[in-house]
Write a protein that binds this DNA or RNA. Structure first.
Lengths: 339, 339
DNA sequence: ATCAATTATGTAATCGATTACACAAATCTA
DNA sequence: TAGATTTGTGTAATCGATTACATAATTGAT
């Protein structure tokens, strides 16, 4: 039972041509009702399934889009993907996922193989700011394949993006800490060659300035996004002559590490020290000492990225669209910064 | 710059035929060194990219596999997918993801569209035990497309599966509670028409029997996998004339809800009451009162499912393979069950 | 120098579906 | 009823790559 039924098989059986079968199946108005019915019935009887590869080859549209993320098992990214899938599924698109593990080589390789696979668009969160991938990205744009950056982007001609306002997120989080009465606010930053981290930092800085707080370079530490990095950073901060009494962390994981280390040093949260995270990872809500965090609405971000893609693909004029969507971040204020 | 370079373009430029170009690109040994070099150079110069759709149509292999999960933004599933992707990427396969939201209609629809897209295999965690999807699944098997169930499975001819030993997981978790001195152990079960929940339940039951503890039907409650369901279930348990002093929950989320509700009732964990979860969701580790849980090694499960697929696809004989892999669960014993 | 074997390349069919163009039959017009 | 329309199908090319088979060119054997 491994045979595949093709339109030719149906045609042979009914003694008509494949062209007629194709037209009948596609509800072409030029086909008589009788023939159409006959074809549809026979197709059903023979368990005909259309071969989308053949269709795609002919039409030049694969109905697949590629999504590239650093790794899929991070809640933020899987939520974005969920949003993308839910938006594109009703439109008949399939989502192909690729992981880069923040490795530039893989990033380039993924883009290339997706292009070879003839995807109709690529949605990606770029992980590397070097110039290495520029030619590959340019190739995508030149081929008129919609490319949309989400969360992490890079300025490039012809590339759309959906991001959140990281500056505002940083600003609001810092302001919340100030409002809570914190006076010496430290900041855990990520790699600041990435816009997102740079912007969160700038928002932090601006809030300090606006509310007349001192800016201390020793208070800004670059950390990885994990628990241990947060612990280490806190250790450094506590050894300062004048340690801070709050942290705005660009990473929820680092924020958690910070809290753990602070507690072990007998520091009370939020009484003596407040912490604000970024990302609104699920665990921040589940903790007994729940962590305040900036929500990036990943679901919404994914949906929006998908919408931008759809808009772009339906653009028949040869005008290059370049759309920049910036979502508003929302604060989730929890125990770690409430007193 | 939207033109695509095909082998015909290369052929024309070099005044040879497309066949020769194809052979040169595929390192066919019948091609002279000179021609091969010339073709490769020209291809590079013209920025030739192979069109995998055309290749796939010809070969009948799309190099895509479909992965169907209830939803991607649950850590367990995204980790499985990560494992699958990492195992299949080096083999040149792309992973297409589909979500069902536990809806049977979508499940059937996803299988169908994946088949139409000519995927080379389908890996899925089945969410519905009704007979509705049987014909569709049978169709996959009949077409000789490898189908592999992971985590949640259904007994079907020709379908392989990768699961963990849920019975042993349930048994060991319950035993751990008994070892901790708990005497009246309740159980939160999921929908027991799903094998995984039935088996966890059976393991629980067996452990009680083996260690001579009473089995109380009031102690077994079917809950959904979320925090509120856990809270409600605890409320019920506490209203019993002889309430339990431990819970083995089939869900980490329900376990968390249980703990929250217990605490609010002034019950001390683990001193007065122990809790064991299932799934080892990331948050169980991050809580201050960390939750013991049964680890399902999702990464390993994904890797293994991918390996079974690869094995099956390389099976040239027409023998149907049906492989059942059962992974050993591993206990993560944490504070919620340690005294 | 003749025939066989080897090597490199061309020819054309194939994978399955779509569609511009051609054409026959049915229907309509005057 | 001749000629013009309309309607429904067929013919054949196309999408891009692969490959069985055919054939030309070269090398080797005797």
């Amino acid at each position: 039972m491994d045979q595949k039924t093709t339109i030719y098989d149906i045609a042979k059986k009914l003694d008509i041509t494949a062209a007629t079968v194709s037209r009948a199946l596609n509800n072409n108005p030029k086909i008589s009702e009788a023939t159409r019915k006959l074809v549809l019935e026979t197709a059903a009887k023979m368990n005909y399934k259309q071969n989308r590869l053949a269709q795609s080859l002919r039409s030049g549209k694969s109905n697949n889009v590629g999504v590239i993320v650093p790794r899929i098992d991070v809640n933020f990214f899987s939520s974005v993907i969920r949003g993308i899938e839910e938006e594109l599924h009703p439109e008949g698109y399939h989502v192909i996922i690729c992981q880069t593990h923040e490795d530039e080589k893989r990033e380039i390789e993924n883009i290339t193989t997706l292009m070879n696979a003839q995807v109709d668009g690529i949605l990606m969160s770029i992980s590397n700011m070097s110039k290495e991938n520029d030619p590959v990205i340019k190739h995508v744009v030149d081929k008129n394949v919609p490319l949309i950056f989400f969360d992490r982007k890079k300025k490039m001609d012809g590339v759309s993006s959906v991001t959140i306002d990281d500056f505002e997120g940083g600003y609001l989080a810092t302001k919340n800490l100030i409002d809570a009465g914190c006076t010496r606010i430290a900041h855990f930053s990520g790699d600041r060659s990435l816009e997102i981290y740079e912007n969160r930092f700038k928002g932090y800085e601006q809030a300090l300035k606006d509310f007349g707080l001192e800016w201390n370079p020793d208070y800004v530490i670059q950390t990885k996004s994990n628990v241990d990095a947060g612990r280490n950073a806190v250790t450094k901060l506590l050894s300062l002559p004048n340690p801070p009494n709050a942290i705005f962390s660009s990473s929820d994981f680092a924020a958690l590490g910070a809290i753990q280390e602070l507690k072990e040093n007998g520091i009370k949260i939020p009484e003596d020290f407040c912490v604000f995270g970024f990302g609104n990872e699920p665990f921040t809500r589940f903790l007994e000492l729940s962590i305040s965090s900036v929500d990036q609405s990943p679901l919404e971000m994914g949906r929006m990225a998908a919408k931008v893609f759809l808009e772009q693909i339906s653009n028949t004029d040869n005008i290059k669209i370049e759309k920049k969507v910036v979502l508003k971040p929302e604060l989730q204020i929890r125990k770690s910064s409430t007193r």
